[in-house]
Write a protein that binds this DNA or RNA. Structure first.
Lengths: 217, 217
DNA sequence: TGATACATACCGACTGGTTGGTATGTTAAT
DNA sequence: ATTAACATACCAACCAGTCGGTATGTATCA
């Protein structure tokens, strides 16, 4: 006679379920407006489970930012823009990719850590730092391609690759804010278009194959 | 015999004091994390005064966004960049001006309505709309100069002035987020520099004095 | 093999404090 | 005398966090 297990959802996934719920709810309501009870309800677990996995609500915020870092890193690592041979094509391909995923509901394509940063930067330094790591580590993944393109176009001495990488994230974060304010993704797409035009103009302004140390073949 | 007045702060300014407090506190903590009691304490008034002037906390959020619109509109109206004769100089002067006021503490130069938008866009449509009006009305003040510059450089048919105006706001909002995450205004300044370079490149790409209908003199 | 010991995962009632909001009283200007 | 502009007292709902307890997995040793 088969014994019915008491825990319907597989035991051991309460933490992940809470982090999934946090991603969805915090993106629509914000961190402060999201209660622990609400997260537990959405995750189908109890408060006991919550505080078993997270020492405090703030600790969940930190974990949610780290969870976001991990999942988005995997998502972008598998994106197609890496396959271009030319570095500039990879950079522009990234911008195109970001443009293409701006679709559907606001809470589906906007950024969790961008939202949390605004609420936590002063009151919850631990969350802020986790959000900063998520943003700037992602920006850092763009740096090699940007640096290679700058070198190829003879701009390496004048423009900082890291600064451009950060700027792409600033444009995206700002685009999300405008989209939320207007309640319309279109304005965000427009800004990403401007970002692409900036990069295009920037690399157009110098002839291709400028001074570069490494000569291919 | 002089009677000591019971109301030390001049009677009649409780509303303004609450809006000042909201501007300062919401910018550092966010809207949801700011309680009515905290606002009353900071403003030196009681809850009775609060709910006399505002029907709800949400109503205060709307009023704070409108208050922000009014004060910033006056601030930018008096800024020096309007005095340039050339439209493009006025546009670039605006960007320089925005760059120059990024200094000091984060809560002093970042944007109230950008912060509130993220928290309110889904849960408080009234606040979201007030924030949207603040952002896009400010962007609209840049449109005439941008439009004139586009016309002067023969770009009027290809690029939308309103879209560029909105993009400047997106860059600024995103720059603020990065500055908060990094806890350092420098990254924001870097992004504004990229914005200026974008506009410079954009208007460099076409010869000055392109087709324009209105002939001076 | 199975009993003991312990760790991990989770439950749900409970608590002290805080929340937004209300009801009513008081002051002062018109 | 009326009304706007406050203050005071209060409330029900909700908040993050605690706690005693249960179910399940695992390591150890006889």
């Amino acid at each position: 006679m088969a014994r019915k297990p008491k825990y319907e959802p597989e035991r051991g996934d309460a933490r992940t379920r809470l982090l999934d719920a946090a991603r969805d709810i915090v993106r629509t309501q914000g961190f402060a407006a999201t209660s622990v009870d609400q997260l537990c309800r959405a995750a189908g677990v109890t408060k006991g489970a919550f505080f078993h996995h997270f020492a405090s609500k703030e600790a969940l915020g930190v974990a949610a930012a780290q969870f976001w870092s991990e999942t988005t890193a995997a998502f972008f690592a598998g994106a197609p823009y890496h396959q271009h041979e030319d570095p500039l094509d990879r950079v522009l391909g990234y911008v195109d990719f970001r443009r293409d995923i701006i679709a559907g509901n606001l809470e589906e394509f906007t950024c969790l850590v961008g939202t949390m940063t605004q609420e936590a930067y002063h009151s919850h330094p631990a969350i802020r730092d986790a959000c900063a790591a998520s943003i700037f580590d992602h920006a850092a993944t763009l740096e090699p391609d940007i640096r290679a393109a700058l070198l190829q176009y003879g701009l390496a001495g004048q423009i900082d690759a890291a600064s451009i990488a950060n700027h792409t994230q600033a444009v995206l974060q700002g685009a999300f804010i405008l989209a939320k304010a207007a309640n319309d993704p279109t304005v965000a797409i427009d800004s990403v278009d401007h970002l692409k035009r900036y990069l295009t103009l920037l690399f157009q302004s110098r002839p291709k194959g400028g001074q570069h140390d490494h000569d291919p073949k």
